[in-house]
Design a binder for these strands. Structure first.
Lengths: 154, 154
DNA sequence: GCGCGGTAGTTGAGCCCTCAACAACTTGGG
DNA sequence: CCCAAGTTGTTGAGGGCTCAACTACCGCGC
């Protein structure tokens, strides 16, 4: 009845599991060490920095960072304590809140980005051939299409 | 100076990030819902179930599950409360502890496994062509070789 | 045998995340 | 207009993880 994994599938699954865990753990640890923030918080700053006025609705920001609303709410509370983000009421929907990247938050991000990008490059892209990188993208987009069909691919 | 990511690399990186997050989150949630345990605990039970006497040294078990010793120690404490694992002193090294899967823990695992394997199959393997599965394994093993060269590949 | 560096495992504080409940607001149908 | 159903964001409790400090023990060199 159960479609068990054969030996090859099991090996693939375990390699994928442990390699992605190792990669994300390494990047998270580097970011924590060099910029005093977890990767999830870095992502929030990045998304805000790319948005018009460096401002986003909480719910959009939650979607953009694959985060639950609750998690984002807690995270923004902490980012506000650090002075990296501030909240503003949304003018068109009185339920809404806008998260705004502060100038200081932007500077912190600018300082953190080169180190993190270097980490992504050295631990991921430098380890793969161009063909493998293309394959990784194809695989990832196939999985996204199944698990999160709404998310835009770019 | 900084080797920034170009548009293609950024797209690949984000797709990989969000797809693996979506996959692991989904599996974790399913396991929590159906078997009342996080994926990390499931992995501990699996490794113990495969070991001789269903018994492993804490430190080996930590390695096998890509876990820090501290994390494993906390986890086994909780698994012990649930009655799924118990600790035993190591006869050959008085510093050591052995984690033993209990009969009840084994039954819990046997009950949880089919649902979880079905999740891995439907959310991962069913979404990829055989070629993509082979590519994923190659990529994962390349990353493992860089990030965790000691880990055996099988 | 003694002592010292290394190893095994645990602990507690602090942080982050999940889940469920909740308040405040918007929207559309009657 | 009004209310019911849906949406937005927050909160607090509880669980899991990290990090650093700690205890206990091993084993090697002298």
């Amino acid at each position: 009845m159960t479609r068990w994994l054969n030996a090859d599938e099991q090996r693939t699954w375990r390699a994928f599991l442990h390699s992605s865990r190792a990669l994300f753990d390494t990047l998270d640890r580097e970011l924590q060490r060099d910029a005093q923030m977890p990767h999830a918080y870095y992502e929030i700053l990045v998304r805000l920095s790319e948005a018009p006025e460096r401002t986003m609705r909480m719910s959009e920001l939650a979607e953009a960072t694959s985060s639950s609303r609750s998690r984002l709410s807690h995270a923004v509370a902490r980012l506000e304590e650090s002075g990296w983000v501030r909240r503003k009421d949304c003018p068109t929907d009185r339920r809404g809140q806008l998260a705004v990247l502060t100038e200081y938050g932007f500077e912190v991000l600018v300082a953190a980005a080169p180190g993190h990008v270097e980490g992504v490059r050295s631990h991921l892209f430098d380890q793969l051939t161009p063909q493998q990188v293309a394959n990784l993208r194809e695989i990832s987009e196939a999985l996204l299409g199944h698990l999160d069909p709404e998310r835009p691919l770019y």
